[in-house]
Design a protein around this nucleic acid. Structure first.
Length: 583
RNA sequence: GCCCAUGUAGCUCAGUUGGCAGAGCACUUCCUUGGUAAGGAAGAGGUCAGCGGUUCAAUCCCGCUCAUGGGCUCCA
């Protein structure tokens, strides 16, 4: 057998450390609780977990006890030893202990020889490798419990999962816990309440967002920017209704393939209607309201379309996963010949928009043809090549999900990473060979024959709700000047300065700036503190000195006080920042 | 939907082994005219998420419902 050293700080080494800690967890649980059966215990991105089949779920007090026992096991410095048995013998080992999940796993293995690992009196089915002994675990922590289905399927029994993490040193663990705290600080749900951006209400329903004036202002800025950029890029902006007859969704296929996400139909004068889960059929109807020539294509319809999808209650999460949301949707109808240039254009446009908001880190995924598909092989190949070509021409790193495309066409997904390191899908560019077929969408080609256009669905921000959530976390609520709900607040030192301050405030408003005036009977320090907590980019201090000299004394959100300047100069300064990133 | 936890004033949270509900901040009023992250005083504010049950008595115990959080699973 060849021995390969693995550095514990490497990704691989960390995985081995954590996986070994999972074994220690399992040993501790087995020694503390009877009638517990082992399922699986792998390492994850952030740590590890182990799934147990047990009568009663683990309580926080249980976790403390388990942690303490794990500490003893680590102190015992038991070596991890591997044992290789014929599968028959291995089966006997586990069936003798009543470990039926382990038996099930062995049943699924191809190999004749099965590997077991032991430490102290504990044995587990495991391919390894492991650290030499339990004493190598220098820092670990159990982080939580959760229900989890055996093999991830709802049809199976729910097991009790214990999550934990381990690091090569105490300081690395502390750093990790610090990162978690930082993530909590950035949490858009917390900031949403503190900055009065949005709420949800028990009386309105789960997953339905109320945009408060501050949040609505940010949204309005986003929408205005989005609209003008779309017009500039030759999209036609449209509007469509929120409900439509059920037959439309039967024809589109949503009723058959997407029903678990649809809200129930409502009866209107004997016809069933549903609230829309998508905008595409409406855009298709607009396309079909005329005969279209190849000369008209590509046609690009864009809409900030509000859709409703039924999501199971357990998956709702702040603004990132909701039941009613507005997509920044568009559908492009193109000839097959122009598909590639269209996709290149869409990808350029997507990156331009995302970068305007200050996002520069993306995970890009290309999903290709699955086994079951509609459309011609030629078109699929053409579309995949187009998607791939445009990603590469942008010089983007990407990964291919082979066979993961939707049955109707290949797609590009772009994910933005949030503060917790979770990647949230925002942008998506999907080629669709199916809907044009289902709705018999056509155009007259150069030889005068009816041809089928290809459709491209795309959303750049995905949904305004989710995108807003990402923005909040990205900026920790301190929006850049062009997005800030309030851009500048005018603060008086004493009420002698009220009249002058008001004139400053009015000038700012006339410049189109989102300004506020604070003439309350409070000390300057109090007003500054409040403006800081609201994360307003600029505070203009107005006292006797400023009034006498006809100046304003700006203080930036970062804490730096600028030398007093004429109001016109300040307006020049803030206006220079009052635009999207890189513009 | 499923497992676990949580739900007390606008916010953050105490609390009652079942016996008239508490703090800080915010809010209102008054005093204070103060120069770059909290000046002082007084006041008001709650059907203890909702519905039902047990009890002389329920915010507390039990059941159901709703919502929120951590997961499973899925997606914009």
């Amino acid at each position: 057998m060849r021995i390969q050293p693995v550095v514990v700080d490497s990704k691989e080494g960390l995985g081995i450390l954590r996986h070994s800690t999972a074994h220690v967890l399992a040993q501790a649980v087995k020694s503390l609780f009877s009638n517990v059966k082992l399922a699986i215990g792998p390492a994850t991105e952030e740590g590890f977990y182990y799934d147990f089949d047990t009568e009663k779920p683990f309580t926080p007090e249980d976790l403390e006890k388990i942690e303490a026992r794990m500490g003893e096991i680590i102190k015992g410095d038991f070596p991890f030893t591997q044992e290789r048995l014929p599968r028959k013998d291995a089966l006997a080992v586990f069936s003798g202990m009543g470990e039926n999940y382990k038996e099930e796993i062995i049943d699924g293995l191809q190999d004749d020889i099965v590997s077991l690992y032991r430490q102290s009196d504990f044995v587990d089915l495991c391919r390894g490798p492991h650290i030499p002994s339990t004493g190598y675990i220098k820092a670990f922590k159990l982080t939580g419990t959760a229900g989890a289905y055996w093999r991830g399927s709802e049809k199976n029994k729910m097991l009790q999962r214990i999550y934990g993490t381990a690091f090569p040193s105490k300081s690395a663990l502390a750093e990790y816990l610090q990162k978690i705290e930082e993530a909590k600080r950035r949490d858009h749900r917390k900031l949403g309440r503190e900055l009065d951006l949005f709420t949800t209400s028990e009386d309105i329903g789960a997953g339905l967002v109320l945009w408060h004036p501050n949040g609505a202002t940010v949204r309005r800025i986003i929408e205005d920017f989005w609209k003008s950029e779309h017009v500039r890029n030759d999209y036609k902006i449209i509007y469509s209704p929120h409900i439509a007859m059920l037959d439309l969704w039967k024809r589109s296929g949503h009723w058959d393939f997407y029903r678990e996400n649809l809200f129930s139909p409502m009866d209107v004068e004997g016809h069933d209607y549903i609230v829309k889960p998508m905008n595409c059929p409406f855009h298709i109807e607009i396309y079909k309201s005329h005969l279209r020539s190849y000369r008209d294509l590509p046609i690009r319809y864009a809409e900030l379309g509000t859709v409703y999808r039924y999501e199971r209650s357990g998956v709702l999460h702040g603004l990132l996963r909701v039941r009613g949301f507005t997509q920044d949707d568009a559908h492009i109808f193109t000839t097959p010949e122009k598909l590639e240039s269209e996709i290149t254009g869409v990808l350029d446009f997507t990156l331009y928009i995302l970068k305007s908001f200050g996002f520069n880190e993306f995970d890009v995924y290309l999903s290709t043809r699955p086994e079951k598909y509609v459309g011609t092989l030629e078109n699929w190949e053409r579309a995949e090549a187009a998607l791939k070509g445009s990603i590469e021409s942008q010089g983007l790193k990407y990964s291919i999900d082979p066979g993961e495309g939707v049955f109707y066409g290949p797609k590009i997904d772009i994910k933005i990473k949030d503060a917790l390191g979770r990647a949230w899908q925002c942008s998506t560019i999907q080629v669709d060979f199916n809907l044009p077929e289902r709705f018999d969408v056509t155009y007259r080609d150069e030889s005068g024959r009816e041809s089928r256009p290809i459709m491209v669905h795309r959303a750049l921000m995905g949904s305004l709700e989710r995108f807003f959530g990402c923005l909040i976390e990205h900026y920790v609520g301190a929006f850049p000047v062009w997005l800030a709900p309030v851009q500048v607040t005018v603060l008086t030192v004493t009420d002698r300065n009220n009249i002058y301050a008001e004139s400053v405030y009015k000038m700012l408003r006339e410049e189109g700036l989102r300004a506020e005036l604070d003439v309350r009977n409070e000390k300057l320090g109090f007003k500054i503190r409040e403006a800081q907590l609201k994360k307003i980019p600029y505070q203009l201090v107005i006292g006797d000195n400023e009034e006498k000299e006809r100046l304003v004394a700006p203080r930036a959100r970062g804490g730096e006080t600028l030398t007093p300047m004429a109001l016109t100069e300040f307006i020049r300064l803030i206006q220079s920042q009052n635009r999207p990133k890189g513009r």
